[in-house]
């Protein structure tokens, strides 16, 4: 039993193809990957929105903006 399908290397290499584990589940891997990718965007966009709201709440007054611009 081997997760890669390779039990030993007593083989002719011309007969060997894929050597990664859990062959046959590639579509499942893809679905998981796409969900993770889209989920990342959702989490990132929410986090960025919160970040800007927090910056404006804490530093968005005219005096702080003026100080920031003077310091540039």
């Amino acid at each position: 039993m081997s997760t890669t399908g390779i039990e030993n290397w007593a083989v002719d290499l011309k007969d060997v193809g894929a050597i990664y584990p859990f062959q046959g589940a590639e579509v499942l891997f893809l679905i998981v990957g796409v969900v993770l990718w889209l989920g990342w965007h959702v989490l990132q966009i929410r986090a960025e929105k919160r970040e800007y709201e927090e910056i404006i709440r804490e530093h968005g007054d005219a005096a702080t903006i003026g100080r920031a611009l003077d310091g540039e």
């Binding site: 290499l13 011309k14 894929a18 590639e26």
Partner: peptide, 13 residues
Amino acid sequence: TAWSETMGPNAGD
């Protein structure tokens, strides 16, 4: 394709 065997470690490709 993302699910093709040739996209992973493959002794034949």
